[in-house]
Design a protein around this nucleic acid. Structure first.
Lengths: 196, 196
DNA sequence: GCAAATATTGCACACTATGCAAGGTTTAGT
DNA sequence: ACTAAACCTTGCATAGTGTGCAATATTTGC
């Protein structure tokens, strides 16, 4: 994972463009910002902008953090209670997201109204779910159960972000705890033979 | 829910345009079909096309079936085991979808590659989840648990469709059964104190 | 049968996104 | 340092998307 100078600079520019895109959209909304505005505010030509991102919305979404191989291995090879290990994975992921709360907040606004941006993010999340689902399959030995668990993982993250955006006094971590409680509660309700 | 002649005709045209859009995309892919092609193949002007749908992708997605008020009320007021009632709701919904298997199949292909279409569908699903979540909240009295259950409902439908597209010999109903088994298995795993 | 309501259309226009080719910059090897 | 290869940036041309507006056509209720 060592990057050449060239690659490093490219990554920085990509980041810079994302920031600029989000900042420009903050008041006007992404729809009312032209790619030309974003490009020149970022100090590149319009043509170069499209060299970094295939479209405006992709620039806004950027490249969300992924689960690392270590995290997936931990899930694969763990031996403790599954729920606890999943929660740990979620905590780690939320910690990564916390480092970029400003971006998260600006992006949240865009996702509410922009269908294309939502679709792009959904694509990343689907990939994430596939990853987690594969790791969990190695652990639990059943494809459908692994897939259902993966959905709980990725929607807990989404849920935590949404709750955090909504409730100003909650930290991302606290929001995750609340959401996870809900996930566990739902599981108990579904698993239990009687309606509680 | 009685429609005037005008409204009925409008609805039919909207349907017709969706069909045409999907059929034209079937070989070339939606990206390589122009709105002008779709419009003239549908027998309307380009301008009128945009009068029915805000964009190509929305025309492809159309207006997916929603849960009815009766279904939501049944969920709200039911008294049997929750899992069984949710499963019944899912069966009813899948029955509706089965009536349009051709559309479902064509749409599935588009969703794989088209981000905007995915975002639009995701928007409908989010609305659906909100609806179900509200109904379930009235039943279980806890917002987060209701939300987590709603996620299981809407992703079971999505999962069933994906499985059905993948496994030619499965009917939609059968696919749902398989997915639902996975959902229940995941719940038991999460709820149980020991790793099975 | 007629006025009001609603639909369709053409046209102009601003914006998105891509291919291509010219020119500039970085890199690695000598 | 020098140079060739690799890589980046840019401008320009162009096809396509989507909207506002105003004219025209059609449907509806009375």
């Amino acid at each position: 994972m060592t990057l050449s100078l060239r690659q490093k600079r490219r990554q920085e520019t990509a980041f810079h463009i994302q920031r600029t895109t989000l900042e420009l959209s903050e008041d006007k909304g992404l729809e009312n910002v032209t790619t030309e505005e974003i490009a020149s505010a970022s100090g590149v030509s319009t043509r170069t902008f499209f060299n970094y991102y295939p479209n405006k919305e992709a620039a806004a979404v950027g490249h969300p953090p992924k689960f690392t191989e270590e995290q997936k291995d931990a899930l694969r090879n763990g031996s403790g209670p599954l729920a606890a290990e999943i929660k740990q994975l979620l905590d780690q992921h939320i910690a990564k997201l916390s480092a970029r709360e400003d971006i998260l907040r600006m992006l949240g606004n865009i996702l509410k109204s922009n269908e294309k941006a939502r679709g792009i993010l959904e694509g990343y999340l689907a990939e994430e779910r596939r990853d987690i689902s594969n790791a969990l399959f190695d652990r639990v030995g059943n494809r459908q159960i692994a897939a259902a668990l993966a959905i709980n993982v990725s929607s807990a993250i989404g849920g935590a972000i949404m709750l955090w955006e909504h409730e100003k006094e909650l930290s991302l971590h606290a929001a995750l705890d609340v959401i996870w409680e809900g996930t566990m509660g739902a599981s108990r309700l579904l698993a239990s033979p009687v309606d509680q």
